[in-house]
Design a protein around this nucleic acid. Structure first.
Lengths: 222, 222
DNA sequence: TCCGCGTTCGAACGGACGTTTGAAGAGATT
DNA sequence: AATCTCTTCAAACGTCCGTTCGAACGCGGA
């Protein structure tokens, strides 16, 4: 752990794209490969070969493979949290500070669903996040487990929307909702389509979101 | 891939415990280690060392590490499915063939929850199943994804209980319920406890099951 | 021009892993 | 006792991986 290769240049503030095209190339290539094949099934050699850069680039720019994974995850997770927070804020603004349950849940559910749509610029990022949540190493798992700060505004909004419920109950119901959201993986959809023998067809994200909201809202308003 | 070591003895029917104590020991040790540390983080050497058997035992008795994983998973998953099916059958028997939604959902939710309780003989098995679902290789993933036959009785029961709903809608709602169930992992509970600052305390499985049933039933009866 | 610094490069290191091999052991059968 | 079969054993094989190393490169400033 002694001496680590110095962070290259670091530009003026934080944008490392200007001088290090290699670093940005590694970031995007790694994210895509990780999203496609999973974290463990993509080696540093796969990434550097696909990106057309030298093998040592990953360790030079990021220190280690784990750090690279964590770096990508940190950026994307923060981005997703911002998206959710913005939707919540908009909903609260629309209702004079007190958003109804359905719109709070929509702010929680919509971003990951929308990001997963084909053609969305964050589609790969969303797949990566899902992969990293399940397959990530110690660093990612800690980041996911301990950083719950972005959920606090949602808890507060839900408690305010249902002041008659014990806060304990609100937390449990939020847990159930998050379970519904996290279950929206490609493999699970395929499983559902096999089970329903083609009856359920994905692609209509709007309809799925409404179905989820109907279900979750009913559970929450009970 | 040519010649594979012959399956040892195979006893009279299928029970391989009589003559091969080693095989059974590998099975239980591997299941426990896999459940504790994850599939990728447990090597064949870890298993054989912990079990006190020779390194080659795994390949001799199971052919490969992947086959060993699949073997454990197949047994436990079948066991869980049987448990669920039995609960569903009992519920239907109680109501003259037509079980209400809540009891159908209980048959789906209760077994994995009960297995996870401290002290339950299938606690380790349940943790293994959860691990294998997420971290399993091609074989496990295919088994999970394609084998949906054990869910069909539940679909049929739910459609019968809510004949007014389009079958498509029933399938989607079942998908949501399964999301709730699959989210009951140790890491997620810890995350919830951090978020609620100790307000939510686990241990009371009965209460959690009732909470889940309340939530899911409301979403289903909507 | 020369120097310094950040970056890239090819090559290798050291280790962990799943798997294979061939011999040795054990127990029943002939 | 001899033979056969199933099982166990120690030792290694070959591969893939993350990481490190030292030299070369390119370029802006003295």
């Amino acid at each position: 752990m002694s001496a680590l290769a110095a962070e290259p240049s670091a530009a003026t503030h934080e944008d490392a794209d200007r001088d290090a095209a290699t670093k940005a190339l590694v970031l995007t290539t790694a994210e895509r490969l990780f999203a496609e094949r999973g974290l463990r099934c993509v080696s540093v050699r796969d990434i550097t070969a696909e990106a057309g850069v030298n093998l040592a680039s990953v360790n030079y720019h990021f220190g280690s493979k784990d750090t690279l994974v964590f770096e990508i995850f940190r950026r994307r997770a923060a981005e997703l949290s911002r998206d959710r927070a913005r939707m919540l804020h908009e909903a609260q603004a629309r209702h004079g500070g007190q958003a109804p349950v359905r719109e709070i849940l929509a702010a929680l559910m919509a971003p990951p669903l929308l990001w997963s749509r084909p053609g969305h610029p964050r589609r790969i990022a969303m797949q990566f996040i899902i992969r990293a949540r399940g397959e990530g190493g110690e660093a990612v798992r800690e980041a996911v487990g301990k950083d719950v700060s972005h959920l606090r505004p949602f808890v507060a909004a839900l408690i305010a929307a249902r002041p008659d419920l014990p806060p304990e109950e609100v937390h449990w119901r939020l847990h159930f909702v998050l379970g519904m959201v996290h279950n929206n993986r490609v493999a699970e959809f395929e499983r559902l389509h096999v089970l329903s023998e083609g009856l359920t067809r994905d692609g209509d994200t709007e309809a799925l979101l409404n179905r989820m909201l109907d279900f979750a809202e009913a559970g929450f308003l009970r």
